[in-house]
Design a protein around this nucleic acid. Structure first.
Lengths: 350, 350
DNA sequence: CTGAAAGCGCTTACAG
DNA sequence: CTGAAAGCGCTTACAG
């Protein structure tokens, strides 16, 4: 019960606590013999430095925080929708933290609340995390960013929409991904390709639409009235918008939905209309969510490097906290996406 | 940058730091006028007590940890399967923590590793969390439980398999849930009901099989050879075992899969065999995962109170950390499941 | 109801 | 290469 402290280890090893501290922190200037003696004593005693004491006395807390939007989280809970994006964010970050002896803290943020700045400032003052990983929409929240800057807490923005000059970011190219997926459909021979836009509050929604429009233009394909439809990232919206697309006089032979949930809705709508995917209508999604492989046919989609982005963010923050160097050149990591070709896309019917 | 400390607030309010401390901790014995003065000073200064200092000097850390299995986590990542269970665990706990001013830490545990005890002991010594939420299989890991007991750290086991006498637990009745689902199928008129068992390492797998067998027996329904098949909770295993069931001479008219992923595999297998769900074969799942509503037909399944279990666990731990009372009578909370009737189950074909 | 003193377990300068 | 002193920002007894 009574914890083992640095004094116990120092006494057992017959050295000063400062030497124990040096060994535990892998600082130089300790003779190998001393080091071994300390390590042995620490091992026998089962000593593990108290993080609070380290944090209070020193400049590091060994804690990395992830800011997650509170409203989105509650929404996911209530709607029983998946939280796949956040799971992946956490997986990537947790693994990196663990390897480095850091700990990951999940912090819920009211991005739209009137007290975001206060909340964030209070959190930073209380916890003094060595770094913060910002997930959307915190990644673009000026109040959050400024508060972090003011506190001098390093952070990395994951998948932000607004460009540079706003602090380090790790992201992927949504425009290019949507462009390539549209090209894939065009390459299969589709000329009439419909598109379902995602929830407008997410910057990614606009980026994906842009990529679609660019590719259509580049291939000289017309975008007829009613082919670009507004969804909201839910299965239901995909179902409805696909129905609308199928009801069009000159209906598309392919539908590109901005995320997998909507794409699954499209497949359901196509089946309900008595048509086949991909025989009559091809469907492409975006995300590579778990359900993309459980659908029949399996979904052609875009794999986002979500876990990789958060791993990269965690690594950056940990490296920075270790070196305490000035944040060198501005970080701007672009991670590659991947087109996953599965069974939901095929050439259009003859 | 330079943090606001308790001394700044005390100076500004013209009181001692002890009084500030009393106000911040809502301790009694402070005159309302004093309290107001302190609160005002704290507000103007934007003061937020340093958690490390609080933890070091006091007996609370305001941190609740969730133990998550490392291997499972890595597995989920690599297989790109969902981590729905863990998401729900976290959602429930995070919300409660935030409301109470606590912080949630995710800690990866090597449940099968040779150093679990050491790892856990080191974590507890370093972080001194006020409580730990154990998710399966940590909930049943003797090494983990004993280490927590030895350190005197309060914990709650979520969904453990082994019964009482092993510390507080919050769980649901898997046997009853499987029994009721089987009864539901029998009530629809099914007499030939197949069952797909889950990954054997999970205690829930056995419990669900037991519930199925109990209900079959109670209804006087025979369980023919080959009707109980071993799966592993993956879509693929559900697909394969359903194929095997459908190939049986006297094939079942209903299949009850131990989780939704396998149930979705069943639906796929039924379609591949040229049959209809539920027209020819009914399918029931277990979990109410997000994809249960994206499938066609939508899945009849069991909703587990996962978020509710972790909320309850977090509440218990926070209450205990606040009162520092002896852990009263042993906690054993049984939370209700819910049968979700959707479209994948119907009477058997005439 | 209020406060002065001691101490939590470390790291940070600073000496030698 | 090693160590003695001071201090991080709080809470815990203990006085009054």
């Amino acid at each position: 019960m009574a914890s083992v402290t640095i004094y116990d280890v120092a006494a057992k090893a017959g050295v000063s606590i400062k030497t124990v501290s040096r060994v535990m922190n892998k600082e130089p200037n300790v003779r190998p013999a001393m080091r071994d003696r300390v390590l042995e004593a620490a091992g026998e005693l089962g000593y593990s430095p108290n993080l609070s004491a380290r944090s209070l006395a020193g400049s590091r807390s060994f804690v990395v925080a992830v800011f997650v939007d509170a409203a989105l989280t509650i929404d996911h809970w209530q709607s029983e929708r998946g939280a796949d994006y956040l799971s992946r964010i956490q997986l990537g970050a947790t693994l990196v933290c663990r390897e480095a002896g850091y700990h990951l803290l999940i912090e819920l943020i009211d991005n739209d609340g009137p007290k975001v700045r206060q909340d964030v400032a209070a959190f930073l003052a209380a916890l003094k995390p060595d770094g913060v990983i910002l997930t959307p929409p915190s990644s673009d929240n000026p109040g959050v960013l400024e508060t972090l800057d003011k506190a001098g807490t390093p952070y990395v923005r994951v998948g932000p929409e607004r460009a540079e000059g706003l602090g380090p970011r790790v992201h992927m190219d949504d425009v290019a991904a949507a462009r390539e997926m549209t090209q894939h459909l065009a390459d299969l021979g589709h000329k009439r390709i419909g598109f379902i836009v995602g929830e407008p509050r997410y910057g990614a929604s606009q980026a994906r639409r842009e990529g679609y429009l660019e590719a259509m233009k580049a291939r000289g394909l017309a975008v007829a009235d009613g082919w670009v439809r507004q969804g909201d990232f839910t299965f239901q919206s995909g179902l409805e918008q696909a129905k609308a697309l199928l009801a069009l006089p000159d209906r598309p032979t392919a539908i590109f939905a901005s995320n997998d949930d909507m794409a699954l809705g499209c497949i359901a709508a196509i089946a309900e209309a008595g048509l086949m995917t991909p025989g009559d209508v091809s469907v492409a999604g975006f995300d590579d969510s778990p359900s993309a492989r459980f659908s029949r046919p399996q979904l052609t989609t875009v794999r986002q490097p979500v876990a990789e982005m958060s791993s990269a963010a965690a690594k950056l923050l940990i490296a920075q906290s270790r070196s305490s160097d000035p944040p060198e050149r501005p970080v701007d990591m672009l991670l590659p996406f991947e087109l996953i070709h599965r069974a939901s896309t095929a050439p259009p019917p003859k």
